[in-house]
Every structure is written in C-alpha cells, then in structure tokens.
Write a protein that binds this DNA or RNA. Structure first.
Length: 543
RNA sequence: GGCCCGUUCUUCUAGCGGUUCAGGAAGCCGGCCCCUCAAGCCGGUAACGCGGGUUCAAAUCCCGCACGGGUCACCA
C-alpha cells in the first residue's frame, strides 16, 4: 500500500523530461514537418478498419514527406504484449506500410511503448499538480459511483463533485500523510468552451461546464489512455492526429490537456467509421454472425469456409474478413486491399477508382475525406483486387500461387505453372483460387468428378458413345494442341449432327472433372494426351 | 437522457448556388461474344431524409424536425 502511494508527494518524484511547449516564434517561422502516428493496443489481430485508419495516417505522412510513427498503447500490461503485437506488425509489413519511428524500430522519441513511459507521465502529472491544473481527488470510487447514480436518477448530467478541493489545508495534509488513496483529475475550466478545427469535420465546439474532471492517474499510480496519449503526442511532436470518429468526443478533454501541458494541440482529423454495408454499425469482430449474412460480405465468408479448411487455417470464424490476416491468407494483393481501403471514405476525384499506392500517396489530402460512415463492400473490394491480379506479371503470379499448392500437396514447377496460369487468366482473383483447378495438379486417378455434373451427363443420351468416340478422336490426333483438337471436335460433332454443347460437356467432365473451367481445348493441351485418355476411360466406367 | 457527429442510387462516391430533370464505380438486369465459367464490350436499372426559409436560382447556404451513429469509466 505504502509503496503504491509513494507518488503522493510530487516533490519526491524523479524528474523526467517534461513535454516542452514549442515556442510561438518557432511555430510561426516555418510550418512544422508533418508527424503522424498510429497507436494500436496489442489485441492479437489487426482489424481491417484500424488498418484503414493507420493507412490514412501513413498516407498523410508520405504525401507530405513527413514522419509516420507506430506507437504501442499497452497501458494494460495484462496480456503478452509481444505476442499480441505480432499480427499487427505482420499486417503492416504485408501491406508494405513502413514506419519511420516506433516499435521495433526506435527513434529519437523512444521509448514507443506506453508501458515504458511511466516516468514521463509521472513528470507530467507532477507538473500539472504543481501548477494547480490538476488535483488529487480523495473520494473513493464508491462515492463517485454514488454521485453518478444520483445524477442519473435525477436525470441530471453527471459532473463530479470537487470535494477534495474544498478540504482545508490541514485535512488535505492529513489525508496525504495517512497515505489515503487518490486519483489525479484534470481541473476542467468549467467556464470555458473548447473549439477545434477538425480537418474533416470542420469546427466543433464543446462547453466545458457540463463535463466531469477526467481522471489522469488511477489510485494505483497507473495512467489513463486519454492522458498518456496526449502526453505522448505532445512529447513526440505529433502534428496531425488522424483517427476514427469514435474519438471525436475525447478531443475536448485532450485539447484541454494539450493546453494544460503548455503544448499546441495538433490538427485533428476524425475519419468516419467503417461499417457493414447496409448497416450503420461499426464493423466489429463481435457480431460475425450478422456480418456473414450481409449480402456484400457473404461471399467473403463463404469463401473462407471453403478455402481455409483446405489450408489447415480453420474457417471464417477464426479468420474473418474483419481481420487483415484474412486477406493475406486468402491470397489478396496488398495493392488491391490498399486500393479498396483508400476508397473507403476518400476519393481522388469523380471517376478514378483504380489507384496504385504511388497514385494514392500523390493525391491523398485530408480535405477529401468523407464525413459519413462507409460500408465495407466485399464486391467492390473483389473487383479492385481482380483488376490488380489481372495486371500482375506472370512471375509474381507464379510465386504467389506456389505456397498454396505446396500447402495442399500439389507441388508444381515454374515451367508447368507458366503454362497453366495464362490459361486460367483472369479467373484467378486471389492466389488461393488456384485450389479450384485441381485438374492441372492431381493425378488422373485422384481427380474427382463433380457429382452434379456427372448426374447431368448420365441423363444425356448417347453420353457413353460420345465419350468413346472422343477417345478415339484424341488417340488418332497428331497432337493435342488446342489448334488441332478444336477443329477436329467441331468437325466430328458436325458430322454426327451433334451440337457442340452435347459434345463438350462430357468431354469437359472427363478431362477436368467439372462442368466449368478454362477453355476446354486449352485444358486438354495442358493436361496432355495420355492423361486425357486415361481420365476419359475413368469417366466411361462411371457412366 | 446530456453532449457531439452524420444523412446523394442497394453499396462506395462526385457535387462546395446556375454548365446536373445529379456524374463515375461496384452490384443487379438484358444483349453481344461463346464449349462452360470468367473477362471484355454495349445497353438498362436506381438517389439528393422531411419541413420551412434565404435567393432570380439550392443537393449545395440558414433554421427546425426525423432518423442513424458516437460518446458520456479509476477501458483503450
């Protein structure tokens, strides 16, 4: 107990650098170089909405030639911070969003973990206490709760009662001497109001008369986010705080804190939420069940349930579209994700949709951020992704697809893939889509015939005879290049008075095991004569 | 409930008083192409929350209302 409260007397506190106020002249002579930060707490995963916020911070820094900082808000040190941080770093690295200062990198304002900055917060508390801008509140939590309950019952807005400020100096000294627990609260100037000029929302004003004095330091000596965050932003010379709209209300307190600390508040930019399309609720990991049923997201969930089990990665519950990792594991391209994220609440002009990173960086400005919330549309994402996958050079496609093939035990060499991938062409939207093309990778006997397609062929008249004739045709063909087989099959169909559909369907099923896929004659050429014949024989036997 | 924010097609958005009976993209529908699927091309679909002002003129400015959201912790 005693140890816990050794901070009771400010004069015994260690000194640490106190955030310094920038001088008026320095500010006026030249605009400060932009410094933005993203400050995640170690949650064990990276939320797609958080990623978009981080992206905007990064973009603003890159657009202005400024500095982007990754700071860790780990004031609750319960969990294993290092482990819970890995997915976050991983997401940044995967997307290619680098940071100039911060966790795992260091920099002139180190440390960048809040858990390591207690001395700095302590010094700031001391300063505020000495200056009378903050005060010790000895009211125990029960009393505060009681006050709050009473205010609520009376339908009054709750404002804390400053009993500790009414104490006589003697009583105050007595409480201190006895080591009575206390919290430190900011003394809110209740006769003032706070106005900010938000870069996105414009002028926003709050009346300080109706707000409680926020707690800065808990009775156990730890600090609150709102306080630590401002101390850090001031100390790290952050010029632009770009963050989600949910923090807008915090901004009043934080502005007051910047002022109290003698620091010029940075420019705030509160960006809109990402929601589920058709809803106005924040996209949250908590209501996955609702999300999976929203039309614009359903496909993403369904695909996860199809693909992730094959890869031994669980399903859409363990790896859902609200997590950045979903996209990485599914085989999306960073440029596709970034393009989609950029278009969520920001636009370049009235028509540009396809943008690479360089274009986005070049044009990104805060004033073009939209004010209203943005629904995360899986279809739109998919279409952007499809574009970028389509323009990806072949060697990169090969490299992207290989890990998936290895994972399911269908290894293929580059030469083989260099033939197959151009055939699959734009049907490959994400790398894991390669898993849909078993026909090019599995052995003839391992190839499964699609049940539905098989049923359909069975009901088709003369299916067996057609397959038998096609086998003969293939056997006698000089080669199985598309340019050879295509006309041969056409001629034969014509000679038999058959429509191409009647001929192609069984042939496709036999050769690829499915009723859909790439151009049939290209498929035949890729699979090769022997395999095609072998597979057709198998089909004959099953018919 | 107090305070704060938001509201243009199903979705993402353009629009900052006239050049817009509102433009682009995704979706959806139809057509072309075609051995299927995908892509591509062509065409179609569909919006300024409501009510008052201001103005010669309003999606655009002002005021109400409604609806949605956020936030009100010794959480982050």
């Amino acid at each position: 107990m005693r140890e816990l409260h050794r901070w009771a007397n400010p004069t015994t506190w260690p000194t640490a650098p106190i955030p310094t106020a920038r001088t008026e002249t320095a500010r006026m002579t030249s605009p400060r170089p932009v410094r933005t930060r993203f400050a995640p707490s170690p949650t064990g995963y990276m939320h797609i909405g958080g990623m978009r916020t981080a992206f905007f911070c990064w973009l603003w820094a890159r657009h202005t030639g400024g500095t982007f900082i990754l700071r860790i808000d780990d004031t609750d040190q319960e969990r294993n911070v290092s482990e819970a941080l890995q997915p976050i770093f991983r997401a940044f690295r995967w997307l290619g969003l680098d940071w100039d200062e911060g966790a795992e990198k260091g920099g002139p304002y180190a440390p960048y973990y809040q858990s390591q900055r207690s001395d700095i917060y302590r010094a700031a508390i001391k300063k505020l206490l000495i200056e009378g801008q903050a005060f010790k509140d000895f009211d125990p939590p029960e009393v505060v709760q009681q006050d709050r309950a009473e205010a609520e019952a009376a339908k009054r807005n709750y404002v804390n009662i400053r009993r500790s400020l009414e104490l006589t100096p003697e009583k105050f000294a007595e409480l201190e001497a006895a080591g009575t627990p206390f919290v430190v609260r900011l003394l809110v100037p209740r006769d003032q109001s706070v106005t900010i000029h938000d870069a996105v929302r414009g002028e926003v004003t709050w009346d300080c008369g109706t707000m409680p004095d926020p707690v800065l330091m808990r009775s156990n000596g730890s600090f609150l986010y709102n306080f630590a965050s401002v101390v850090d932003d001031a100390a790290m010379e952050i010029t632009h705080i770009i963050r989600a709209e949910e923090h807008l209300t915090n901004t009043c307190v934080q502005t007051l804190l910047f002022r109290a600390l003698g620091s010029e508040p940075p420019v705030f930019a509160h960006i809109p939420f990402i929601t589920a399309p058709g809803s106005t609720k924040k996209l949250s990991k908590r209501d996955l069940d609702k999300l999976r049923n929203t039309p614009a997201l359903k496909k993403l969930f369904d695909r996860a349930d199809e693909v992730f089990p094959k890869l031994g990665l669980g399903d859409s519950k363990s790896l859902s579209p609200v997590m950045v990792e979903y996209y990485e594991k599914m085989g999306y391209l960073p440029v596709g994700i970034l393009n989609a994220l950029a278009r969520l609440g920001w636009s370049l002009d009235d028509k540009t949709e396809i943008m690479d990173l360089e274009t986005i960086v070049k044009h990104f400005t805060l004033d073009r951020i939209v004010k209203s919330s943005a629904g995360f549309d899986g279809d739109k994402l998919q279409s952007l992704q499809a574009h970028w996958m389509n323009v990806l050079p072949l060697p990169e496609k090969i490299a992207g697809v290989k890990p998936y093939l290895e994972q399911v035990g269908w290894p293929a060499d580059d030469t083989h893939l260099a033939k197959i991938l151009p055939g699959i062409a734009d049907r490959l939207k994400v790398f894991s889509d390669i898993l849909d093309y078993a026909e090019f990778f599995v052995s003839d006997d391992a190839l499964a015939f699609d049940a539905k397609a098989l049923e359909k062929i069975r009901t088709q008249p003369q299916a067996r005879e057609i397959v038998a004739s096609l086998k003969k045709l293939l056997t006698e063909a000089p080669d199985v290049e598309a340019a050879t087989i295509d006309p041969l099959v056409h001629q034969w169909a014509e000679s038999q008075g058959l429509k191409m559909g009647q001929v192609v369907a069984p042939l496709r099923l036999g050769v690829t095991g499915r009723s859909v896929g790439i151009g049939l004659f290209d498929a035949i050429a890729l699979i090769g004569k022997d395999s095609c014949l072998h597979r057709l024989t198998r089909l004959e036997q099953t018919l």
